[in-house]
Design a binder for these strands. Structure first.
Lengths: 137, 137
DNA sequence: GCAAAATGCTACCCCCGGGTAGAATATAAA
DNA sequence: TTTATATTCTACCCGGGGGTAGCATTTTGC
Protein backbone atom coordinates (compact mmCIF):
# COMPACT_ATOMS: atom_id res chain seq x y z
CA UNK A 1 0.00 0.00 0.00
CA UNK A 2 2.66 2.45 -0.98
CA UNK A 3 4.21 4.22 -3.92
CA UNK A 4 7.39 2.79 -5.34
CA UNK A 5 10.52 4.71 -4.47
CA UNK A 6 10.62 5.67 -8.15
CA UNK A 7 7.26 7.44 -7.86
CA UNK A 8 8.22 9.10 -4.58
CA UNK A 9 11.39 10.46 -6.16
CA UNK A 10 9.72 11.53 -9.40
CA UNK A 11 6.94 13.43 -7.62
CA UNK A 12 9.24 15.13 -5.11
CA UNK A 13 11.62 16.06 -7.91
CA UNK A 14 8.96 17.51 -10.19
CA UNK A 15 7.34 19.40 -7.32
CA UNK A 16 10.72 20.86 -6.43
CA UNK A 17 11.35 21.91 -10.02
CA UNK A 18 7.87 23.38 -10.36
CA UNK A 19 8.28 25.20 -7.08
CA UNK A 20 11.47 26.99 -8.09
CA UNK A 21 10.34 28.21 -11.47
CA UNK A 22 10.75 27.09 -15.04
CA UNK A 23 14.54 27.04 -15.24
CA UNK A 24 16.94 24.21 -15.97
CA UNK A 25 17.93 21.98 -13.06
CA UNK A 26 20.87 19.61 -13.20
CA UNK A 27 20.42 16.11 -11.82
CA UNK A 28 23.38 16.79 -9.54
CA UNK A 29 21.70 19.78 -7.85
CA UNK A 30 18.35 17.98 -7.55
CA UNK A 31 20.06 14.93 -6.11
CA UNK A 32 21.93 17.04 -3.53
CA UNK A 33 18.94 19.15 -2.52
CA UNK A 34 16.44 16.32 -2.23
CA UNK A 35 18.72 13.56 -0.95
CA UNK A 36 17.95 11.24 -3.87
CA UNK A 37 20.66 8.87 -5.22
CA UNK A 38 22.32 10.62 -8.17
CA UNK A 39 22.52 7.83 -10.71
CA UNK A 40 19.07 6.54 -9.84
CA UNK A 41 17.53 9.97 -10.31
CA UNK A 42 19.38 10.32 -13.60
CA UNK A 43 17.67 7.25 -15.01
CA UNK A 44 14.33 8.48 -13.69
CA UNK A 45 14.63 11.90 -15.30
CA UNK A 46 15.80 10.34 -18.55
CA UNK A 47 12.62 8.28 -18.57
CA UNK A 48 10.43 11.30 -17.79
CA UNK A 49 12.22 13.04 -20.63
CA UNK A 50 11.51 10.35 -23.19
CA UNK A 51 7.84 10.44 -22.15
CA UNK A 52 7.61 14.17 -22.72
CA UNK A 53 7.05 15.33 -19.15
CA UNK A 54 10.39 17.13 -19.00
CA UNK A 55 12.95 18.20 -21.57
CA UNK A 56 16.67 17.52 -21.36
CA UNK A 57 19.29 20.18 -21.99
CA UNK A 58 22.67 18.69 -22.78
CA UNK A 59 26.15 20.05 -22.32
CA UNK A 60 27.57 22.41 -19.74
CA UNK A 61 24.91 24.12 -17.60
CA UNK A 62 22.47 21.53 -18.87
CA UNK A 63 19.87 19.54 -16.98
CA UNK A 64 16.11 19.13 -17.14
CA UNK A 65 13.25 21.56 -17.54
CA UNK A 66 9.48 21.19 -17.25
CA UNK A 67 7.99 22.27 -20.55
CA UNK A 68 4.29 21.55 -20.34
CA UNK A 69 2.01 23.71 -18.18
CA UNK A 70 1.86 22.50 -14.57
CA UNK A 71 -1.95 22.35 -14.72
CA UNK A 72 -1.53 19.74 -17.42
CA UNK A 73 0.69 17.28 -15.58
CA UNK A 74 -1.32 14.95 -13.37
CA UNK A 75 -0.14 12.52 -10.71
CA UNK A 76 -1.62 9.58 -12.59
CA UNK A 77 0.60 10.32 -15.58
CA UNK A 78 3.76 10.45 -13.49
CA UNK A 79 2.95 7.27 -11.57
CA UNK A 80 1.97 5.50 -14.77
CA UNK A 81 5.32 6.34 -16.38
CA UNK A 82 7.59 5.26 -13.55
CA UNK A 83 5.72 2.33 -11.98
CA UNK A 84 2.54 1.75 -13.93
CA UNK A 85 -1.06 2.08 -12.74
CA UNK A 86 -2.00 -1.61 -12.98
CA UNK A 87 -1.75 -2.23 -9.25
CA UNK A 88 -4.15 0.68 -8.59
CA UNK A 89 -6.78 -0.79 -10.87
CA UNK A 90 -6.68 -4.48 -10.13
CA UNK A 91 -8.77 -6.45 -7.65
CA UNK A 92 -7.38 -6.21 -4.13
CA UNK A 93 -7.44 -10.01 -3.80
CA UNK A 94 -5.93 -10.58 -7.23
CA UNK A 95 -8.91 -11.98 -9.12
CA UNK A 96 -8.94 -11.40 -12.86
CA UNK A 97 -12.51 -10.26 -13.11
CA UNK A 98 -14.04 -8.63 -10.06
CA UNK A 99 -16.95 -6.21 -10.22
CA UNK A 100 -20.39 -5.49 -8.79
CA UNK A 101 -21.91 -8.43 -10.65
CA UNK A 102 -19.24 -10.91 -9.63
CA UNK A 103 -17.46 -9.53 -6.58
CA UNK A 104 -14.67 -10.94 -4.43
CA UNK A 105 -15.25 -11.03 -0.66
CA UNK A 106 -13.47 -7.69 -0.19
CA UNK A 107 -15.00 -5.89 -3.15
CA UNK A 108 -17.69 -3.96 -1.28
CA UNK A 109 -15.18 -2.83 1.34
CA UNK A 110 -12.38 -1.93 -1.06
CA UNK A 111 -13.78 -0.63 -4.35
CA UNK A 112 -14.77 2.74 -2.91
CA UNK A 113 -11.26 3.42 -1.67
CA UNK A 114 -9.73 2.21 -4.93
CA UNK A 115 -11.95 4.46 -7.04
CA UNK A 116 -11.26 7.40 -4.75
CA UNK A 117 -7.51 6.99 -4.99
CA UNK A 118 -7.57 6.62 -8.76
CA UNK A 119 -9.79 9.68 -9.09
CA UNK A 120 -7.39 11.63 -6.87
CA UNK A 121 -4.39 10.58 -8.95
CA UNK A 122 -6.15 11.48 -12.18
CA UNK A 123 -7.36 14.89 -11.02
CA UNK A 124 -4.47 16.20 -8.94
CA UNK A 125 -2.03 18.32 -10.94
CA UNK A 126 1.56 19.36 -10.39
CA UNK A 127 0.29 22.93 -10.08
CA UNK A 128 -1.78 21.98 -7.03
CA UNK A 129 1.11 20.12 -5.42
CA UNK A 130 3.55 22.95 -5.98
CA UNK A 131 1.38 25.92 -5.07
CA UNK A 132 1.65 25.82 -1.29
CA UNK A 133 4.67 27.35 0.39
CA UNK A 134 6.19 25.96 3.53
CA UNK A 135 5.71 22.34 2.66
CA UNK A 136 8.55 19.91 2.86
CA UNK A 137 9.94 18.62 -0.39
CA UNK B 1 -0.88 -0.03 -3.94
CA UNK B 2 -1.68 -3.62 -3.36
CA UNK B 3 -1.73 -6.35 -0.76
CA UNK B 4 1.18 -8.73 -0.71
CA UNK B 5 0.43 -12.16 -2.11
CA UNK B 6 0.77 -13.40 1.47
CA UNK B 7 -2.15 -11.22 2.58
CA UNK B 8 -4.23 -12.18 -0.44
CA UNK B 9 -3.71 -15.85 0.32
CA UNK B 10 -4.29 -15.51 4.05
CA UNK B 11 -7.56 -13.60 3.60
CA UNK B 12 -8.91 -15.89 0.88
CA UNK B 13 -7.97 -18.94 2.92
CA UNK B 14 -9.56 -17.72 6.15
CA UNK B 15 -12.71 -16.60 4.33
CA UNK B 16 -12.94 -20.03 2.73
CA UNK B 17 -12.52 -21.77 6.07
CA UNK B 18 -15.04 -19.48 7.75
CA UNK B 19 -17.47 -20.03 4.91
CA UNK B 20 -17.49 -23.81 5.19
CA UNK B 21 -17.97 -24.02 8.93
CA UNK B 22 -15.75 -24.57 11.92
CA UNK B 23 -14.17 -27.87 10.91
CA UNK B 24 -10.56 -28.82 10.31
CA UNK B 25 -9.11 -28.09 6.88
CA UNK B 26 -5.85 -29.58 5.64
CA UNK B 27 -3.39 -27.35 3.85
CA UNK B 28 -3.55 -29.76 0.93
CA UNK B 29 -7.30 -29.34 0.45
CA UNK B 30 -7.13 -25.57 0.87
CA UNK B 31 -4.24 -25.38 -1.58
CA UNK B 32 -6.14 -27.45 -4.16
CA UNK B 33 -9.45 -25.63 -3.78
CA UNK B 34 -8.05 -22.11 -3.81
CA UNK B 35 -5.16 -22.58 -6.21
CA UNK B 36 -2.56 -21.43 -3.72
CA UNK B 37 0.97 -22.97 -3.75
CA UNK B 38 1.00 -25.79 -1.21
CA UNK B 39 4.29 -25.20 0.56
CA UNK B 40 3.80 -21.45 0.59
CA UNK B 41 0.36 -21.75 2.15
CA UNK B 42 1.80 -24.16 4.72
CA UNK B 43 4.23 -21.56 5.98
CA UNK B 44 1.47 -18.96 6.02
CA UNK B 45 -0.90 -21.09 8.09
CA UNK B 46 1.88 -22.03 10.47
CA UNK B 47 2.46 -18.34 11.09
CA UNK B 48 -1.25 -17.64 11.59
CA UNK B 49 -1.21 -20.56 14.03
CA UNK B 50 1.63 -19.23 16.12
CA UNK B 51 -0.17 -15.88 16.30
CA UNK B 52 -3.35 -17.48 17.61
CA UNK B 53 -5.65 -16.82 14.67
CA UNK B 54 -5.98 -20.51 13.84
CA UNK B 55 -5.15 -23.75 15.64
CA UNK B 56 -3.20 -26.62 14.15
CA UNK B 57 -4.30 -30.24 14.42
CA UNK B 58 -1.46 -32.64 13.82
CA UNK B 59 -1.41 -36.17 12.49
CA UNK B 60 -3.78 -37.99 10.20
CA UNK B 61 -6.95 -36.05 9.38
CA UNK B 62 -5.23 -32.97 10.80
CA UNK B 63 -5.05 -29.46 9.46
CA UNK B 64 -6.08 -26.03 10.71
CA UNK B 65 -9.19 -24.72 12.41
CA UNK B 66 -10.39 -21.23 13.25
CA UNK B 67 -10.91 -21.05 16.99
CA UNK B 68 -11.76 -17.47 17.81
CA UNK B 69 -15.19 -16.03 16.92
CA UNK B 70 -15.30 -14.67 13.37
CA UNK B 71 -16.58 -11.31 14.64
CA UNK B 72 -13.33 -11.00 16.54
CA UNK B 73 -10.88 -11.46 13.67
CA UNK B 74 -10.29 -8.23 11.80
CA UNK B 75 -8.54 -7.64 8.48
CA UNK B 76 -5.98 -5.38 10.13
CA UNK B 77 -4.85 -8.22 12.38
CA UNK B 78 -4.39 -10.63 9.48
CA UNK B 79 -2.51 -8.10 7.34
CA UNK B 80 -0.38 -7.08 10.30
CA UNK B 81 0.66 -10.68 10.92
CA UNK B 82 1.62 -11.61 7.38
CA UNK B 83 2.97 -8.37 5.92
CA UNK B 84 2.86 -5.70 8.59
CA UNK B 85 0.82 -2.47 8.65
CA UNK B 86 3.75 -0.04 8.45
CA UNK B 87 3.26 0.74 4.78
CA UNK B 88 -0.40 1.63 5.46
CA UNK B 89 0.56 4.16 8.11
CA UNK B 90 3.59 5.89 6.68
CA UNK B 91 3.72 9.10 4.65
CA UNK B 92 2.96 8.46 0.98
CA UNK B 93 6.13 10.29 -0.06
CA UNK B 94 8.28 8.58 2.55
CA UNK B 95 8.91 11.46 4.95
CA UNK B 96 9.56 10.50 8.57
CA UNK B 97 7.26 13.06 10.12
CA UNK B 98 4.32 14.22 8.05
CA UNK B 99 1.14 15.62 9.57
CA UNK B 100 -1.25 18.57 9.40
CA UNK B 101 1.28 20.90 11.00
CA UNK B 102 4.15 19.86 8.78
CA UNK B 103 2.71 18.27 5.65
CA UNK B 104 4.35 16.89 2.55
CA UNK B 105 3.04 18.13 -0.81
CA UNK B 106 0.69 15.18 -1.15
CA UNK B 107 -0.57 15.12 2.44
CA UNK B 108 -3.86 16.94 1.90
CA UNK B 109 -4.66 14.75 -1.10
CA UNK B 110 -3.65 11.45 0.46
CA UNK B 111 -4.31 11.45 4.19
CA UNK B 112 -8.06 11.07 3.83
CA UNK B 113 -7.68 7.95 1.72
CA UNK B 114 -5.03 6.51 4.06
CA UNK B 115 -7.20 7.02 7.13
CA UNK B 116 -10.20 5.53 5.35
CA UNK B 117 -8.33 2.40 4.35
CA UNK B 118 -6.86 1.89 7.81
CA UNK B 119 -10.28 2.36 9.38
CA UNK B 120 -11.74 -0.18 6.95
CA UNK B 121 -9.03 -2.72 7.76
CA UNK B 122 -9.51 -2.23 11.49
CA UNK B 123 -13.29 -2.49 11.43
CA UNK B 124 -13.97 -5.20 8.85
CA UNK B 125 -14.25 -8.67 10.36
CA UNK B 126 -13.96 -12.16 8.96
CA UNK B 127 -17.65 -12.61 9.75
CA UNK B 128 -18.55 -9.78 7.35
CA UNK B 129 -16.31 -11.14 4.61
CA UNK B 130 -17.67 -14.65 4.91
CA UNK B 131 -21.36 -13.92 5.26
CA UNK B 132 -22.32 -13.36 1.65
CA UNK B 133 -23.02 -16.35 -0.55
CA UNK B 134 -22.18 -16.41 -4.23
CA UNK B 135 -18.94 -14.55 -3.95
CA UNK B 136 -15.79 -15.89 -5.46
CA UNK B 137 -13.12 -17.13 -3.10
C1' DG C 1 40.52 23.96 -29.94
C1' DC C 2 40.21 22.17 -25.36
C1' DA C 3 38.51 21.17 -20.97
C1' DA C 4 34.59 21.18 -17.86
C1' DA C 5 30.05 19.81 -16.91
C1' DA C 6 26.21 17.85 -18.05
C1' DT C 7 23.13 13.79 -20.01
C1' DG C 8 22.92 8.87 -21.79
C1' DC C 9 23.86 4.07 -21.74
C1' DT C 10 25.32 -0.54 -20.17
C1' DA C 11 26.54 -3.67 -16.90
C1' DC C 12 26.60 -5.04 -12.60
C1' DC C 13 25.26 -5.94 -7.24
C1' DC C 14 22.00 -6.42 -3.16
C1' DC C 15 17.73 -7.35 -0.78
C1' DC C 16 13.38 -9.38 -0.29
C1' DG C 17 8.87 -11.33 -1.64
C1' DG C 18 7.44 -15.39 -3.78
C1' DG C 19 8.01 -20.21 -4.58
C1' DT C 20 10.12 -25.10 -4.33
C1' DA C 21 12.30 -29.35 -2.19
C1' DG C 22 13.12 -32.55 1.27
C1' DA C 23 13.56 -34.45 5.59
C1' DA C 24 11.83 -34.62 10.42
C1' DT C 25 8.00 -35.06 13.49
C1' DA C 26 3.35 -36.11 15.21
C1' DT C 27 -0.80 -38.93 15.39
C1' DA C 28 -5.05 -41.33 14.09
C1' DA C 29 -6.53 -45.41 11.80
C1' DA C 30 -5.63 -50.12 10.34
C1' DT D 1 2.88 -51.92 15.80
C1' DT D 2 2.81 -50.32 11.45
C1' DT D 3 1.36 -47.10 7.99
C1' DA D 4 -0.63 -43.22 5.93
C1' DT D 5 -1.40 -38.46 6.33
C1' DA D 6 -0.70 -34.44 8.23
C1' DT D 7 2.22 -30.31 10.20
C1' DT D 8 6.93 -28.31 10.90
C1' DC D 9 11.57 -26.81 9.88
C1' DT D 10 15.52 -25.64 7.10
C1' DA D 11 17.69 -24.58 3.02
C1' DC D 12 17.66 -23.10 -1.45
C1' DC D 13 16.33 -20.73 -6.12
C1' DC D 14 14.22 -16.93 -8.99
C1' DG D 15 12.72 -12.27 -10.42
C1' DG D 16 12.39 -7.46 -9.86
C1' DG D 17 12.87 -2.95 -7.44
C1' DG D 18 16.49 -0.23 -5.72
C1' DG D 19 21.20 1.30 -6.03
C1' DT D 20 26.25 1.80 -7.79
C1' DA D 21 30.07 2.27 -11.23
C1' DG D 22 32.18 3.46 -15.46
C1' DC D 23 32.44 5.20 -19.83
C1' DA D 24 30.63 7.47 -24.01
C1' DT D 25 28.48 11.58 -25.79
C1' DT D 26 27.15 16.33 -26.11
C1' DT D 27 27.81 21.27 -25.70
C1' DT D 28 29.05 25.55 -23.42
C1' DG D 29 32.70 28.62 -21.74
C1' DC D 30 37.42 29.72 -21.76
Amino acid sequence: MRLYKSSEYAIRCLVSMAHSGGGVHSVKSLSDNLGIPYKFLGRLMSRLGSEGVVESVKGKAGGYRIVRPLEDIRLAEIVDIVEGLESYERCILGFDRCDEKNPCPMHEFWSGHKDGILEMLKSTTLAQLAESEGKKI
